[in-house]
Write a protein that binds this DNA or RNA. Structure first.
Lengths: 209, 209
DNA sequence: CCAAAAGTGTTCTGACTACACCCATGC
DNA sequence: GCATGGGTGTAGTCAGAACACTTTTGG
């Protein structure tokens, strides 16, 4: 009996909270969609194993990664328990290593069918956690590029919370409470007025108020 | 390599947040203090194992029990990882089964020395979690009897948060926001005016606001 | 000149803080 | 009659919610 580690890797693509899934090659659940994961190797830490999986799929290693919950293994004869992590990345870094045989792909969370290993348990839990952390921490920094417009940031909040937010109140809160700060730069986009660029005052995880 | 489960069992005794510790009989760490725990048995669920440990020490099974965090095992050659749970009980149920060879005892959290297996990691994490849950959930119901005076409840909050609270504001919040409700009963205690008894409007875990 | 998104301020409400005095009881 | 703890109300502040119009730009 061994310990499995799985990682739910999220990004906001096209105004939708999306998660990285792979199409399983081997049995059990061959051909079905699942979260990337595998067995904890001897001598490896849990966070190390989760980071390794993350790097396998995306090539990235310096992103937000946090332990989520530990589940009893369901339906997998190999593992006894499953330690789930979740990771967040900005859409711009959401490139996949498509050369891999298990074909990682981004799938909008709202449009998922059934997954292998009852991985829905993990995703439900992760979405809940992400929503609440959005409210009382600055995690959102890990979902946007270093410089961004307030509208982009608001889009990320709206996609995750699945509700619309008042522009003025959003700006007031996020700037007024010191989560982000204005830069002097602007960006022109299409047929619009140039938009001011902002940055997070801190890009370390921190609890607000 | 196996999976260990440990349980941090808390109660508020004598105005101090206290945790149940055992004195280890076997090696490693023989004679040192540790959290109750053991290996996950084949076919057992994580919560099942935690509940079993809880019952072993206290005889109780119907109390608040929640998964806390999963740690890499430190210093134990047997386990690979450690899944920590925490439990809460009212002081009145804080009877120990002293007939056990490993001598469970309540120890105030503020006055602990070093523990076996680096169990401090678990306690720090648990205390943090308990404090924040006190703010935004009704967990406190699991630390007081069904009927209690507001002063008793306030004492529990103060012991855990390690700060004093204004009596009037506390009453306003806890009653006004519907966490507890007054009963018609009162209780006389010593040389004092009789105090009104209260009860929680819900004794299921719930998130406030 | 039109469409599209950026930007901006005020008012109201509800929660939280700080704070001081009277009352019932047992000794 | 006094010591102990129970019980109560008000005023101020601050954060969050609701809400509409003007500006810049490209086509």
């Amino acid at each position: 009996m061994a310990t499995a580690v799985v990682v739910a890797i999220f990004t906001v693509l096209d105004q939708r909270l999306s998660v990285l899934l792979i199409e399983r090659a081997a049995e059990p659940y061959g051909g079905e969609w699942a979260l990337p994961g595998g067995l904890l190797q001897p001598g490896e830490t849990l966070e190390g194993a989760a980071g390794r999986k993350l790097k396998d799929e995306t090539g990235l290693s310096d992103v937000f990664l946090e332990q989520l919950y530990t589940f009893d293994a369901a339906g997998d004869g190999n593992a006894e328990i499953v330690v789930a992590y979740f990771a967040l990345l900005p859409a711009a870094q959401a490139r996949l290593r498509r050369e891999l045989e298990w074909r990682p792909a981004w799938r909008a969370l709202r449009e998922l069918g059934r997954l292998a290993f009852a991985n829905e348990r993990v995703l439900d839990y992760a979405q809940e956690r992400l929503r609440s952390k959005l409210d009382y921490t600055n995690v959102a920094y890990s979902l946007v590029p270093v410089r961004f417009t307030l509208r982009e940031l608001q889009g990320v909040y709206e996609a995750i919370l699945e509700e619309t937010i008042d522009k003025r109140n959003f700006r007031k809160r996020v700037v007024g409470l010191g989560i982000v700060r204005a830069t002097t730069e602007t960006r022109k986009e299409g047929a619009h007025r140039p938009a001011r660029l902002y940055e997070f005052t801190s890009r370390e995880p921190m609890v607000l108020f």
